[in-house]
Write a protein that binds this DNA or RNA. Structure first.
Lengths: 210, 210, 210, 210
DNA sequence: CATGAATGAGTCTTCATTCAT
DNA sequence: AATGAATGAAGACTCATTCAT
């Protein structure tokens, strides 16, 4: 019995991972159920049996990624007390998330590009909770007289959008190294931590009172 | 003959505009040739006759949108002398571009999401020249002791990514107003200039020496 | 063992009854093995284990339903002496059968519609014996100078077909009450006995000499 | 232009005829779009292009048959004055219809068997108008003191059901000639007119006052 | 006996693309 | 240049049937 259970779980996990990759690569419309099944080494019908149709699969995949992210970010942020530390924790959490879910930026871009056409409500809640987090950080810092009062949504989207564009743009930059100037390629290959430090610096410079 | 020529040009323009709208809304895979033809009030076969297949159409649309952006930005920036002013001009140029090409952010996001699969070389050059622009602004400001030395690519992508995420995310935020908190909707409806001022403030705070 | 035997029999009966209902509702092609298993509260594989594939199940169901009909009709008819009484007994037997097997008319219609594709030979014999019965009634009545000489097959099929169409058509009439005229619905709800009396009257009027 | 028009019409007609045959043979669920396309010697997609999905095709086919029937029956009946003649015209109209649309009885049986699951409203109206016809005949005959007052719906369904069962049952009877007795086969092969005369006789005997 | 997972061959439907006129 | 018909290759989803436990 436990054997069956484990086998089932393995199957489901293989499906979800394959789906994640392919949704990230091709978006919802571009993804092919057949390809997902192939990559998961699973009969196509098993996807329908275990999970449901393409929409259900998409929902499940997104929630798996964004739900986990929202929880971990809240954890990391709340472990700190001072607003500056919280802000750092927030940005590093994004880094940690990208480390664990390297497909996340592109998934998010597909979704945003489509205007959230396929965005399931649970995932919208996940995203909302993340924005709530940064809003509370800024508010706290402001009350303590440490932070200027900047729009948290804009700040958040600059961080997230910047990082996403940076990472998602990597293949493009690599392909067009020549046109982009040496720096571009050099930066593109730099490890994630460098990028995050730069972003952190920019954000904290912008936030802190002189 | 001239009448025919003009008629043909009008047809092509209608096709391109319809395609732009639909590619922006639905992406490459999601777009339907039939729908484009319908919206352009043109027979489907005419698209193939005048322009070519779906890929050719998409590439053409991309080039049409990104083409004149680089030139206008360089113009606007070079009209100013001081680095701070140049930086402001740069950000406002982005705003101006979005005003003129409201479909640009989503087109860009589809493209980035797909890894720049359809990005034509000319467009890549356009984008590269924009980065060169901001790099030179920062360098100048740094030499004058006004700016810190921040990575121009990161800065650029935070601006562009932030604005794109903000605008592209509008429909999503509107749909999920409840979960996102009142502020989200309120901001979402704000005109572009408000957003740009916020971004400008953040960027200049980050750049300027204390 | 005896417990097991009884359990098995109960399982088979549940399967057969569920199958009967669903085949009657949906026909052979429309029926879903999954649904039958669900309704029988039985694992799908059990159907294959106990009975066989979809065809076997269908044939078995058909035989189950049509099997005892012929015997009972002969019994009822032979209990009467006079041809008119026999005829009445015959029509009432049909009513009795429908009372006991309310799914019979639709099963028969599916079968006839498909050209008797799945009709097992035993069932064909059952049906043939019924026709033999009515033939002998008419012959007897004719010899006694009571009945006209009408084609027994036609008469039989008018009775059976009429009743089947009437009953099978009930849901349709109910749905389209408006178009059918008030009478349709009113009649549609009438109990079986009313219908049988009407048929009986029509048939005897047609048969009896003036 | 007229060539194209004619070609299109031919295509549509081939599709509709093939569909009629296959729906009659196999019912809605059993019919295969592929087979219909094959038999119509038409690309599958043309069915969707010209007509629509399976439901639309079914609706179109049924309406083509039943609509035509309803109109012709009304015509034939109204051409007569006396109720008895009208009744005869009505029954012969059924014959005429079966001659022209030999697939009708089985189509109707599939539909009735399914409880009108796929019955489109237009077709329901067609059927209702036929029942209205016979109702008015009987009412007229009754007012003139010629007919007994019998339930028109029952009468109609006995006629239609009888004929349908008779014809639909033909293949079954042919297959099981031995069990059915010689008469069955003999009758089964008899031309339609014989059957209709028998039905007519039965119905008029039942209706007319002594 | 019983169960849930697995399979493969369909089945409907769509869509980019081409052809004939 | 323009149109409407035609095509073929997928695409998502289903379902009868079997397997492993």
């Amino acid at each position: 019995m436990n054997v069956q259970e484990r086998k089932k779980q393995a199957t489901v996990e293989r499906i979800l991972f394959a789906a994640l990759e392919i949704f990230a690569d091709s978006g919802f419309e571009g993804a092919r159920i057949d390809e997902i099944a192939d990559r998961a080494a699973v009969n196509k019908a098993m996807i329908y049996y275990h999970i449901g149709d393409k929409n259900a699969l998409y929902t499940r995949v997104l929630h798996e990624v964004f739900g986990d992210t929202a929880i971990r970010m809240a954890d990391n942020v709340n472990r700190c007390a001072a607003p500056v530390e919280k802000m750092r924790a927030y940005i590093r959490s994004i880094g940690q998330t990208l480390e664990k879910h390297p497909h996340l930026p592109r998934i998010m871009m597909w979704e945003l590009a489509s205007g959230g056409l396929h965005l399931p409500e649970i995932v919208a809640q996940d995203l909302a909770s993340i924005i709530g987090l940064i809003r509370s950080i800024i508010r706290q810092g402001h009350r303590q007289g440490i932070f200027k009062k900047l729009d948290p949504l804009v700040l958040h989207l600059m961080v997230l959008g910047g990082i996403s564009f940076y990472r998602a743009g990597n293949p493009v930059r690599l392909r067009y190294t020549a046109q982009m100037g040496e720096n571009a390629a050099e930066n593109g290959n730099a490890p994630l931590t460098h990028l995050l430090k730069k972003v952190e610096k920019i954000i904290l410079c912008a936030l802190k009172h002189d």
